[in-house]
Design a protein around this nucleic acid. Structure first.
Lengths: 330, 330
DNA sequence: ACGCGAACCTAAACCGGTTTGATAGACCGC
DNA sequence: GCGGTCTATCAAACCGGTTTAGGTTCGCGT
């Protein structure tokens, strides 16, 4: 028994294919009575339209894409993607859309987008990990592929964006440390070519605080940067990290060196609350971003006008890893 | 300027659509000369076949699916998926296949598979987080959807599987602890209805060691379980955890309670090497599993016979979190 | 009684590939 | 020189939807 097609439904309801199609797409101009007959027939036969056929005639893919250009190991440690993707799915699945993932080595990122666009596999894409002077923006415009980004304030991307402001989180962390009496507060940032790393660094710079070390968001990088800071002359009494992973690795280094130092992270990963001492960090909501981004992207694909979507700013979560100067951290 | 179609290529090469199609699919029976003319024309025009049209006429989706039925928060902390997916992609992208992701709440898992199958969006799926008496096996058979699982020894799944053996890793961890003088070695496992949790537990049981607490693979669960163990009478001197996340959370609890206890994790997450003390754990290779699983799935879809694929067993990575009894853990 | 527009529906073309049955021509042996 | 096979190619049907350009039918105004 093969899958029923629109033809079968049409025959069962005694109408033409065209009419069934009209009903399916909620077009006006079909009598109530006929409409019901068709819907009944469809239910009876268990018919669902073949989205392949639909895709062919409407040249829509009914799917959106996500290109991840990171090394697998780094991906594994990043709490952002799974949550973001879950949020995206939340929106997509309600609307019968699918999410197509491409994971590519960093140097094949462009090819990844070209593949998705060229084979018309997706109707639009998410643009993540925005970089300074990101070449992908031009690429996507060239490809004519609708896109939505996760962007930061003051950096126009040319696409509608979910506007995430990391600054209040960083500022709050620094203020919190200052209130605890810290006067030399360092920052361990992510690669500065990433917009989100750059803006966190900028927010921190504007507080006028101490030394800065650039790392790469990895545990290894965070540990290394911490060692540099603590073994240098005039070590800071507190460190603001650009993510939890580096912060946790940094805490371990400080413990090993026996240097008491307050630390804050960024992301509020699940583990943050369960390390010792529990990590003071900044809570973000990638799940929400995913939902919003997907809504925006679908809207864009439908031809809506592009607008940015603000989301609530990151919030500081105070835990035990920050303590008054001179006090003991553990 | 619209995308060229097969018709354009045919016209340019002075042949019929059919012949172009034959060449494209590498079918025999086309003269060398004609073949070259067609390929030249195709290159000239920059033609790539529309996979939508292809999908319609061959009723193949050229995509495989992955259903993730976990809460977003848990997903974020799990290092398995990103690495697995990266491996999968590695295989897929070479073969022009796409990966369609579905993230659903746990109670909608079945609907997720039905959606993928019903809309013919994918030609096959990966079946992950296999459970004891998994109902999805019957479901997929009912749906007639080819599938590949990540399975454990001795538990036939009915589908070709990447055969992962966690036991040597657990056994090695216990032996290692025993050699260090530990005599009461506890196990904090994952939910027992998961096959991988069950088999780790079983391997540990067969070593004849101490108390067992079931947790849920989360940091919170690991911390809670650890507290129970250490605050009970006859606390263990070592704990074997079923994943790194619980192990790290457990270490923190032990530190807070001031109880010296050796711990081992499972997964070898990036962070494992950078906590204090560095975590002794078991290294697995989900990237490889992803590659193998994708190869198997594509083979299966092509109609090859199903066979299980063994992968190298997990290996113990000894670090500082395991120390001789009576010695200091930090 | 007739013309007209609205409401409803149909037939057929189309999307861009794959696949099948037919055919034209080359080559073969006798 | 003729039937028979083989090769290379073509034309047309098909996949399962959407869309457009007409038809019918009907009620209504005059």
């Amino acid at each position: 028994m093969t899958r029923p097609t629109i033809r079968d439904v049409a025959a069962a309801a005694g109408v033409s294919k065209g009419t069934v199609s009209f009903v399916l797409n909620g077009r006006p101009g079909v009598a109530e009575d006929t409409k019901r007959r068709i819907l009944d027939a469809a239910r009876e036969l268990g018919w669902t339209p073949s989205h392949q056929a639909r895709a062919l005639s409407t040249s829509r893919a009914f799917a959106v894409g996500l290109v991840l250009a990171r090394e697998p190991e780094l991906l594994g440690a990043d709490p952002f993607f799974p949550a973001f993707i879950a949020g995206v799915e939340r929106t997509l699945s309600d609307r019968g859309q699918a999410l197509v993932l491409q994971v590519v080595p960093e140097d094949e990122e462009e090819a990844g987008y070209r593949r998705l666009a060229g084979s018309k596999r997706v109707d639009g894409v998410f643009l993540l990990d925005l970089r300074v002077g990101d070449t992908r923006i031009a690429l996507l415009e060239e490809l004519g592929l609708p896109a939505v980004t996760i962007a930061r304030p003051d950096v126009p991307s040319g696409f509608p964006a979910v506007l995430v402001d990391d600054r209040p989180g960083i500022v709050a962390a620094v203020r919190h440390l200052q209130e605890l009496g810290h006067r030399r507060i360092a920052h361990v940032g992510g690669p500065a070519h990433f917009l989100h790393a750059a803006i966190r660094k900028k927010a921190w710079e504007e507080t006028g605080e101490g030394p800065y070390v650039e790392a790469d968001f990895s545990a290894a990088g965070g540990a290394q940067a911490t060692r540099e800071l603590l073994e240098g002359k005039e070590p800071p009494t507190a460190i603001v990290y650009a993510n939890d992973l580096m912060a946790i690795a940094g805490m371990a280094v400080a413990q090993e060196l026996g240097v008491p130092v307050s630390v804050t992270g960024f992301d509020n990963t699940e583990l943050a609350a369960y390390v010792s001492p529990p990590l003071t960090t900044v809570r973000t909501d990638p799940y929400l971003w995913g939902r919003k981004a997907a809504e925006a992207l679908l809207g864009l694909i439908e031809g809506e006008h592009k607008t940015d979507i603000p989301v609530p700013p990151a919030q500081l979560v105070v835990r035990g890893s920050t303590a008054p100067t001179g006090g003991t951290e553990r």
